[in-house]
Design a protein around this nucleic acid. Structure first.
Lengths: 111, 111
DNA sequence: CGGCATCCCTTACGATACTG
DNA sequence: CAGTATCGTAAGGGATGCCG
């Protein structure tokens, strides 16, 4: 059943929600570069608490955008890697970034 | 000052917020097609209350994605039109829609 | 090191009733 | 027709403390 109606809008809403967390775009930008440990993400993103970082990572993992690998060591070591699905969002976020720049540019031009 | 740090993530977050309202993508899809009246949007989007539709439209207008034209008539007539800035989001939303489809396809393949 | 449990606060969203 | 005003609820995010 091909959808012509609002199931389209519905799926868009769902996918949009996958990257709409307050810190998710930043986390993804970090992981687009390379696989990183939890502590590396904490350092790369100051102002985020462990609790919130954990939550956002869990959601990204649940939605299949990143994968989580635990090394059974003491002390613990956990690595987060972008998945193929997660990589598909790079184009989207880059476009959004460009729109952001065009808005900033327009603002400065106005003054 | 060219930004290498998180002002990038910050602007992305801001732009993302512009389209992250629960109904905003749907509203934009409607207005990508053509200028529409308030009542047309209501009919096109069942399940949305007037209050919420009004709020989302006001936010889209405030962020410059749509423009609002009031015809001083009785009964009132108000038209909403996508702006140039708003049109820039078409590519983003189309990409997101494609990702959504790829996810749905993968799910059915798994079963 | 990388969590989870708990509490709090703000915001988004929604239902309903009234109005120029 | 196209709103505003008011109220209620739920979710997202944040601060802090404990744990294997």
């Amino acid at each position: 059943m091909p959808n012509q109606d609002h199931s389209i809008g519905c799926s868009v809403e769902h996918v949009l929600g996958m990257v709409s967390g307050k810190w998710k775009p930043i986390i993804l930008f970090e992981l687009f570069q390379e696989t990183k440990r939890f502590s590396q993400l904490q350092q790369a993103i100051p102002n985020i608490t462990r609790q919130v970082l954990t939550t956002q990572l869990r959601e990204l993992e649940k939605d299949g955008l990143i994968s989580r690998k635990v090394y059974p060591l003491v002390p613990p070591k956990v690595e987060y890697t972008i998945t193929n699905l997660g990589r598909k969002f790079k184009g989207v976020l880059d476009q959004i970034e460009q729109i952001g720049e065009s808005i900033v540019k327009k603002k400065t031009t106005l003054k």
